Simulated assay, not measured.
Amino acid sequence: MHVDEWLQTIPSVWVYVLVGAVIGLESLGIPLPGEIVLVSAALLSSRGVVDPLVVGLCASGGAIVGDSIGYLIGRKGGRALFDRLGRRFPKHFGPAHIARAEHMFNRHGMWAVFFGRFIALLRILAGPLAGALHMPYWRFLVANVLGGVAWAGGTTAGVYYLGVVADKWLKGFSWVGLVVAVLVGIGTTLWLKRKAAKAASEEETVPETVSAS
Rank of each mutant, 00 (worst) to 15 (best):
G109P: 10
L44C: 09
M110H: 05
A112K: 00
A166L: 11
K195R: 10
G20Y: 05
L162F: 10
P31G: 01
L85H: 04
G74K: 09
D67E: 04
C58G: 00
E102Q: 01
I23S: 13
A199D: 13
Y161E: 05
D51T: 01
F118W: 06
M135Q: 12
A99T: 02
H108S: 06
I119C: 07
A152P: 05
T9F: 06
L178V: 15
A63M: 01
S40K: 02
A143P: 15
V39Q: 00
A181Q: 02
G147P: 08
A143L: 07
V164S: 08
G116E: 02
P31M: 06
S211R: 10
A21I: 04
A197R: 04
G131K: 02
T155Q: 13
V15G: 11
G153E: 01
A181Y: 04
P128N: 08
Q8Y: 11
G34W: 06
I73M: 14
F89R: 02
V50M: 13
G163D: 05
A42S: 13
D4G: 06
V17D: 06
Y161V: 02
I36H: 05
A80K: 10
I73N: 12
V149R: 01
R100I: 11
G153W: 05
H108C: 00
R87I: 05
S27C: 05
I73T: 07
W111A: 10
A126I: 11
K198D: 15
E35H: 03
G94R: 08
W169M: 13
A21H: 08
A152I: 07
T9R: 06
V165A: 10
R79A: 05
K195T: 10
G20A: 15
I23K: 09
K193A: 14
A143W: 12
G153M: 03
G158E: 02
V182Q: 11
R107A: 02
W111G: 00
A199Q: 08
P90R: 11
A181C: 07
K76Y: 12
V55C: 01
H97N: 04
M135Y: 07
N144Y: 08
L53Q: 03
T156Y: 09
A42E: 09
A197C: 13
P52F: 02
L121A: 14
L7Q: 02
I23Y: 13
H103W: 00
A80W: 10
G20W: 03
H103G: 00
P136L: 11
R87D: 11
D51R: 06
L43Q: 05
L85F: 08
K168L: 09
L44E: 03
G48V: 00
D67I: 02
F118L: 08
T209R: 14
P33I: 13
L85Q: 03
I69Q: 08
A150M: 12
P90G: 03
M110I: 00
L121I: 01
I69C: 14
P11T: 03
V15A: 10
L129K: 13
G154W: 00
V182M: 05
V145D: 14
Y161N: 04
K76S: 13
G24P: 11
H92Y: 04
S45D: 01
L72V: 15
V13W: 12
A99V: 07
E35L: 06
W14H: 08
A59N: 00
V176D: 07
A197F: 05
A212Q: 10
G153A: 03
H92I: 08
N144T: 04
K76Q: 09
L125E: 01
G185N: 11
F173K: 09
I186G: 10
T188P: 15
